[in-house]
Amino acid sequence: MPVEVRLFATFREGRFKEKQMEFPQASSLADLLEHLQIAETEARILLVNGTAVSAEHKLAPHDVVSIFPPMAGG
């Protein structure tokens, strides 16, 4: 199934900013992170279509996934 993946901050280094990717049905975010070689503990903020979810979240076709390392500011 097609999924749009967006990476931010240090996760872009050696990877990409934004990419259309294919994953098997019933894949989870944990599967996606493993594929990208991003440790779950480093992926502090996981958004699917703008909603915060955990790594166990099951992906659906055409989801937009945004992955962030720990960050803050203001």
């Binding site: 967006r6 931010f8 901050a9 958004l47 703008g50 960050m71």
Partner: peptide
């Protein structure tokens, strides 16, 4: 810097 927030706030 603090501007690291631009994308996470926008994506939310």
């Amino acid at each position: 810097g603090t501007a690291v927030l631009v994308n996470v706030i926008n994506e939310s």
